[in-house]
Each structure stands twice: as C-alpha cells, then as structure tokens.
C-alpha cells in the first residue's frame, strides 16, 4: 500500500461556536478521483480551505506527500503542487482571458518570486503558447483576447479550470467545477477531467451534481455537519441508507 498523496488527519475547525469540521480523517491515493459530497454548509469548502492554507485548522494536520503543509503560506502550498479551482470564479478582471491563464504558468516557471528581470520582462512567447494549448482544451481559445469581465459564468468556470491545469498540479482540488454550466458543457468538462485523470492526476472534487460525481469518482466521502458520515466506492455510497437520509433525500440516483 503506497503512501497517500493527501492525508488529512484529525482536523478540527471552529468558527466561533460553530463546529465546521470535527475530527476529519481523509486519505487520498495517487491517481484516484475522490469526491466529497454533502448538503450545503456541511463543511466541504472549509475542508478545501484548510488544505490550501487559507484557513488554519484548530487541531490536526494536513500532510501532502509526507510533508506537513499546515501552517505554510498559501503560495508555498501551491508551489508544492496543490492547486485549487475555486467555486466562485476568482479571476483577474483587469486582464484578458489569455493573460489570466499565462499568470499561473508564470508562477510555475519562476517560482513564488524570482527577480529575473531580463527573462521576466522579455520572454512571453513560451507562456503564450502554453496558455493557448490549455485554452483550447477547455474550449475558450476563441475568447482569448477578451477581458474576462465579459465572459459568462460558465465560461469563467472553464477559465478557472484552465488556470488550475496549466500548473500541472500533483493534486487538483475542484470546488464544484461544473456549477453554472449547461449540460453540454458539463459533459465536456467531465470528459476533460477523465482525460487528465488518465495522465495520472490525483483529483479531489466537491460536487452537488450526482451525474458528475458518479461519472468521475473512484471513492466518495459524505460530509454532513462537519463530520464524515460515510466513505466508500460509488456503489457502496449509493446503497448506504445513512447517506440517503442525510443527503440524497431517499430518492434513488
């Protein structure tokens, strides 16, 4: 049994009196897609925030490839290869679509900060071609010169995805990657994520759309009120009465 890529152990997080996460244990294995589902307010996004260093946990630790990443700066965690795709598109409105994708590639190339003025000022062709490649994959190449403010919400989500993928992450955290997309775009995104998975990418995905979850996930964890109430393969989760009561609402999916 190999070492898990991401190991969340005994994590607690409180917001005032609210217990957002309690005693979370989660192991994610290399090359798998792990879905986290649960009702709104279950603590899914909080869990991702703890993983990328946005929120410090009150107790416990997050270990990525046997390095403890709790307490590190967000940019350090990103440079180690943990990349998050945000739920609400957090893009740079003053830049064009292509520049938005070039930026993470620039971060990847030059690290968190390297004062290499000559290269930083002169060379952008390589970044541009990289950006075009990924924009083509998410189907935004024809929009590359637009300012991102004029994109639709679904297109912004796809842009977010390209911004994550261009960094060639070792662990990709996806926060509802298909929310706000049409059925057609959702299916395209599923295909894209499957393709990436074949290249050996490890993915953690938060999703409400069960169609997406059951087409992608190898394992599913169910989160409710800050606790993991079930974990297993999609078949096991589908058949679990506790999950049906808490989340799937008793209906067969």
């Amino acid at each position: 049994m190999s070492q898990p890529v991401l190991d969340v152990s005994d994590v607690d997080k409180n917001f005032g009196g609210l217990r957002a996460l309690s005693n979370i244990n989660l192991q994610i294995k290399q090359g798998t897609t792990h879905a986290i589902i649960g009702p709104n307010g279950a603590g899914k996004s909080t869990l991702l925030n703890v993983c990328i260093g946005r929120l410090p946990p009150d107790r416990g630790a997050v270990i990525f490839n046997s390095d403890v990443i709790t307490g590190r700066q967000p940019h350090e965690i990103n440079q180690m290869g943990v990349v998050r795709v945000f739920q609400t598109p957090a893009i740079f409105p003053d830049l064009s679509v292509k520049q938005n994708v070039m930026l993470p590639a620039f971060a990847k190339r030059d690290g968190a900060f390297r004062l290499n003025m000559m290269q930083a000022v002169a060379d952008q062709r390589q970044l541009e071609s990289e950006a075009e490649h990924w924009l083509e994959d998410v189907g935004l190449l024809s929009h590359q010169h637009q300012l991102v403010g004029s994109l639709s919400r679904g297109d912004k989500r796809r842009l977010e995805l390209a911004m994550g993928l261009i960094q060639k992450p070792r662990l990709l955290l996806l926060d509802e990657p298909t929310a706000g997309m049409s059925r057609h775009d959702t299916n395209t995104t599923i295909e894209l994520l499957k393709k990436i998975k074949l290249r050996g990418m490890t993915e953690v995905i938060i999703e409400h759309d069960m169609h997406v979850v059951f087409s992608l996930a190898d394992r599913i964890s169910v989160l409710a009120q800050g606790q993991i109430i079930a974990e297993g393969t999609p078949e096991e989760i589908r058949g679990n009465p506790k999950v049906q009561e808490a989340y799937l609402g008793g209906t067969q999916v």
């Binding site: 990328i52 946005r54 700066q73 967000p74 940019h75 990103n78 440079q79 990349v83 998050r84 945000f86 957090a90 893009i91 740079f92 409105p93 003053d94 830049l95 930026l103 993470p104 971060a107 990847k108 690290g111 968190a112 900060f113 911004m163 960094q167």
Partner: peptide, 17 residues
C-alpha cells in the same frame, strides 16, 4: 496588474505577492 485586481487570489496561484 494581477496584484492590483486580486492580491489574495495571487497567492493561491503560487505567487508570493
């Protein structure tokens, strides 16, 4: 320019701003 528009997001993109 990205620092100007969203500095917090920059750090999740791997930049030490």
């Amino acid at each position: 320019r990205a620092i100007k528009s969203n500095q917090t997001r920059m750090s999740y993109t791997g930049f030490n701003t």
